[in-house]
């Protein structure tokens, strides 16, 4: 199995263009026992031309529908990929996120168009849009269960190859991140934890007006006009981390 892994990884690393990567991925996908692949950032692809990873061999009709509906954002598979870093089979979706009617519709529609079952490997590089590498089949009858660990590994390397080819280094808008002063960051943290300005002022032992001003300045630095957006943006770029806000067991690294 490792010989196969190394072979596939070599193949991925040798690609020099988007077309090469597409061809290599088509071959690799078959070798893993799947028909379709998708390497993608979880964004509205039509609204984000240019520096976005979006490469797949899905049936054309499905891809058009998907992009036109901006499903990159709402797709339950993508949402599930945001709550785990481990690859998952779509049949496990309901264990990861709450599936709503709209989600079932999307999954049904996919099934009708020939994308019935899949395995998705989350790919998250901090400071950049979240993404994933998906391998999919028409239905669940020939799902290559034994290949899942290998698909997890190959998916990670494939996403990195896509990043290297499709995104200019240092580009993803993280060079000029807005910087908060330590006090602004403290206030933003307590806002993200759901506290009002008055509550924050009690916690930090400063005037309520001062808290309001810090938060206003922090919002200005991010170019947003709502406190909730400040929380979202600071979480997205890593100024704040989820583990600071929700105290729960969280073990991203293990060394």
């Amino acid at each position: 199995m490792m010989d196969l892994a190394h072979g596939l990884i070599e193949l991925i690393e040798q690609v020099g263009s988007r077309e090469d990567l597409g061809e290599a991925m088509t071959a690799i996908t078959r070798r893993l026992g799947f028909e379709f692949f998708a390497l993608t950032h979880h964004v509205d692809v039509q609204a984000n031309e240019g520096d976005v990873i979006h490469l797949h061999n899905y049936p054309e009709r499905w891809a058009e529908y998907y992009d036109s509906m901006a499903l990159g954002l709402a797709d339950p598979v993508h949402r599930a990929a945001h709550v785990t870093s481990v690859g998952f089979r779509w049949s496990q979706l309901k264990k990861l996120i709450a599936l709503e009617k709209r989600d079932m519709k999307i999954l049904d529609k996919g099934r009708q168009q020939g994308i019935g079952d899949g395995f998705t490997v989350p790919a998250n590089v901090p400071g950049e849009a979240r993404g994933s590498c998906t391998f999919a089949n028409r239905d669940s009858s020939q799902f290559p269960e034994a290949m899942m660990p290998l698909a997890q590994l190959v998916g990670a390397f494939a996403f990195e190859a896509a990043r290297r080819l499709l995104i200019p280094p240092g580009d993803p808008a993280c060079q000029d991140l807005p910087r908060l002063t330590p006090r602004q960051r403290d206030c933003a943290l307590w806002v993200a934890r759901g506290k009002t300005d008055w509550e924050v002022s009690r916690i930090l032992g400063i005037e309520e007006d001062t808290v309001t001003r810090h938060i206003k300045m922090a919002c200005e630095r991010y170019g947003v006009n709502k406190r909730t957006l400040l929380a979202v943006r600071t979480l997205f770029d890593g100024t704040l981390s989820f583990s600071e806000i929700v105290a729960r067991r969280y073990t991203p690294f293990r060394e």
Partner: peptide, 12 residues
């Protein structure tokens, strides 16, 4: 040795 989320960063 890495957890999968850190693994993707190591590759990056």
């Amino acid at each position: 040795v890495a957890h999968m989320s850190w693994f993707q960063q190591i590759l990056a």
